[in-house]
Write a protein that binds this DNA or RNA. Sequence first.
DNA 1: GATTTTAGTTGATCTAGATCAAGTTGTGGC
DNA 2: GCCACAACTTGATCTAGATCAACTAAAATC
Lengths: 249, 249
Amino acid sequence: MSIQTPIPVRDVSFRGLRQSCSNCSLRELCLPVGLNQDELRQLDTIISQGRPIKRGEALYRAGEPFRSLYAVRLGFFKASVISEDGREQVTGFHMTGELLGMDAISTDFHTCDAIALEDSEVCELPFGDIETLARDVPALQHHLYKVMSREIVRDHGVMLLLGNMKAEERLAAFLLNLSQRFAVRGYSAMSFHLRMTREEIGSYLGLKLETVSRTLSKFQDQGYIKVQNRLIELVDVDSLKRLLNSCQG
Amino acid sequence: MSIQTPIPVRDVSFRGLRQSCSNCSLRELCLPVGLNQDELRQLDTIISQGRPIKRGEALYRAGEPFRSLYAVRLGFFKASVISEDGREQVTGFHMTGELLGMDAISTDFHTCDAIALEDSEVCELPFGDIETLARDVPALQHHLYKVMSREIVRDHGVMLLLGNMKAEERLAAFLLNLSQRFAVRGYSAMSFHLRMTREEIGSYLGLKLETVSRTLSKFQDQGYIKVQNRLIELVDVDSLKRLLNSCQG
DNA sequence: GATTTTAGTTGATCTAGATCAAGTTGTGGC
DNA sequence: GCCACAACTTGATCTAGATCAACTAAAATC
């Protein structure tokens, strides 16, 4: 199972990229599959130009009124909920092409924080407008349902991970998932830079930062990976996968 | 925080109940708020009669092709995903008025099993038809987005629970959540029958059945609850809530 | 209504991962 | 380029919850 379903970029939410309209032509960046020229033009009028978010800044925070969904155009985000007593639970890491903010539709307020882990850029998609357009464009309507459904499936995968797996299995699943998602976006599957701290990984995986650190070291000792600070190289992917398959939790 | 957001029944998915059309008049049972007479009539034509599911039977199973969402009309379900190596993770318990199957929109196949934990009855909502109708009925379209969003928020709550909380906190959250949801449906908030085994509770909460049993006994010893097999009586709700608020995980 | 089966409790022990602690490395700010 | 602070590693110890085990109680089944 994969904790963050690896999906071809074209399916993630919106795809493509062209430098025409300023920096964020929805026409190509945020293009749901199967729209015709006219429908695309309509979409373009709705979607705002790219908005840059500096590393460390919040795209939105829990409690803020909901207006728009955001498509990550470039960069890397973490989403997290904070419990009343201040504990943070990272609910996901989001990269190019993924959609943020769907949790907020429920109450018209954001229920989690979205923080940029590197300098990033998003497309703002005003939800009211999107919803209206979706009525005229069945493909868009269906696409939105699909993207939300996929988020639910992903969350179930995380529950399975948190509820059933041991530390090594969690880390292996996490690394393999990241690897796949980078690969899909044209980056190396075998070597990548972690944008998040050990503590954030731990929060996502239900582990303490020391356990994350130790487990990474263990993987390195066993020759599964090489770790240099936040640079990860996957050396023996099969062994990592075996860790996952043979997990008898 | 609540692991399974307590929501007034009218918001859960569809509401109302009348004995007119056989046993499952959508007109009242599965009525999204804010539809007019004509829209209701349209809905009625789409939705199938109530379908009974016996205790222990599956409403659907992972891998089956997706056709419809299901509104629980009566009864109690568990939803669970099974990992490749056979581990079960219960992803939720669902009662009257809640919607099942939204995870399947993503791939057009169900990704989890839905098993009745008592004799139950559901309304089948063919998704294609619902989607088509939603184009003409903005309130219905928006309602569907909301329901799916709410599921995402609920899942984030479970992640927080699984990632951060200790056994006692998880159990307290679980009992309080059940209590609220029963209350909303007109049943007693202080005393209710658990439809699931200790093992199923444990699977949902990321605990072993022995730990669930022990923790319930502990709560009873401390005078928080009374346990008689599957009958739970909440004696000291405040203490249970305090357990949750003061959790310093 | 007796019997088999399944669900639940409780105790003893073990262990994965948390916690505490000390040191190292890396990074952003001036 | 130096300083201060944040991120990371590694070791020693502790503990919540898992595991193993034995027993009891409640349902199904015949």
